[in-house]
Design a protein around this nucleic acid. Structure first.
Lengths: 197, 197
DNA sequence: GAACTATTTGACCGAACGTTCGTATAAAAA
DNA sequence: TTTTTATACGAACGTTCGGTCAAATAGTTC
């Protein structure tokens, strides 16, 4: 075990990186094996062999996006002081993640959960679970803020997190339709107002 | 010209009604001519002939959904007294429209704008235009509320409408993932808080 | 260098895709 | 009644879909 990736693992990683990019723009259904292979310069069967089925490719893509989100948003956000500062850090890192177009279609989970919201199956279940994890994290951080007296004792943290999430998602989506940055300003204004900072 | 629809217009209407249902669940790309024909008991070419291309079918589907939205949300909402009551009526009718699953996948425009947000083309342009019209309507109604002194004179109506829209969309999307009604309660709580009612 | 395993390829499958075409049928117009 | 027009059909087009498989290529181990 040296530091380098095994040969197959390397192409798998490159494949998923491209898959995430495609999925944020054209959805996890618009993500096709043939297109993926074409853009990567691989053969269709070569790409396919790494996953075994389209559904497994979709699931792996979701998990890959999850890791990127954890690396770029969750982990650095958790380094901020607990309570309101941590909540604000998580929100701002999320918005930066969307605004800087780490993925060309903005936030992966906004795009994909809207796509699979009304369906059934393993992909939907995974996306819903990841969304729940994110909301759960925000609720825990908000609860800390209440416990520490940074937010009023009667704060409804579920309501607060619902609103924070709503503003963040709306900023992501509206920035894609309007093609400018003002929605991010609006979302931050709304969240700051809600947190009293 | 008697009251009845021409024969072709009738099937066109039935086709679009089904198309909207499909699109809210599987998107405007998941909407295929073959599937549409199968579910309606028509031939593929018979359905296709009404639209001439897939893109035209998608555009017609968006316009059909627009009409339903106008009939069920906009028109009755505008009958409420101007200002805050009208804004609240529009919001609540929108939420009822989503909650009662007039379309099986909830709000058509939430689903479809998320799908086409990051793309190019005529369908995206039309969806964006319809979203703008809706936001513009809300802004005008909110401006009335400010002018009538129902909202503070320094109210940022664009900010207000951004937040109302964010909460409404989040309620629609989250009710689809959680599969219960509590998101609608949260959205209404948030909006009422913002409007001071 | 041989043997073995991991990786990638290219040729192929049946099904579904959007689309075109010629034709049948039924209502409306002449 | 004849002619025209609107409407729907069935068969087929080329393409792409997800998926399979044996053969070739590369890397590693002996």
């Amino acid at each position: 075990m040296d530091g380098r990736l095994a040969r197959g693992e390397e192409t798998r990683r490159a494949t998923l990186a491209r898959a995430v990019d495609i999925a944020t723009v054209d959805g996890l259904e618009g993500l096709t094996v043939g297109r993926l292979a074409g853009e990567l310069g691989f053969s269709k069967s070569g790409v396919f062999a790494h996953f075994g089925s389209k559904e497994e490719l979709q699931l792996a893509t979701v998990e890959f996006a999850t890791q990127v989100f954890i690396d770029q948003v969750v982990r650095p956000g958790l380094r901020a002081p607990r309570g309101v500062p941590r909540l604000m850090a998580l929100f701002e890192l999320w918005m930066r993640f969307s605004r800087e177009r780490v993925f060309p279609g903005g936030c992966f989970f906004s795009a994909v959960s809207a796509e699979f919201d009304a369906r059934d199956g393993r992909v939907r279940d995974l996306v819903v679970a990841r969304n729940r994890q994110w909301a759960g994290l925000l609720v825990a951080v908000a609860a800390d803020a209440v416990a520490d007296g940074q937010l009023p004792a009667d704060t409804d943290v579920d309501q607060l997190v619902f609103e924070v999430n709503a503003l963040g998602r709306a900023a992501n989506e509206e920035s894609l339709t309007t093609r400018d940055d003002t929605p991010y300003t609006r979302a931050e204004t709304g969240v700051r107002h809600r947190l009293g900072v």
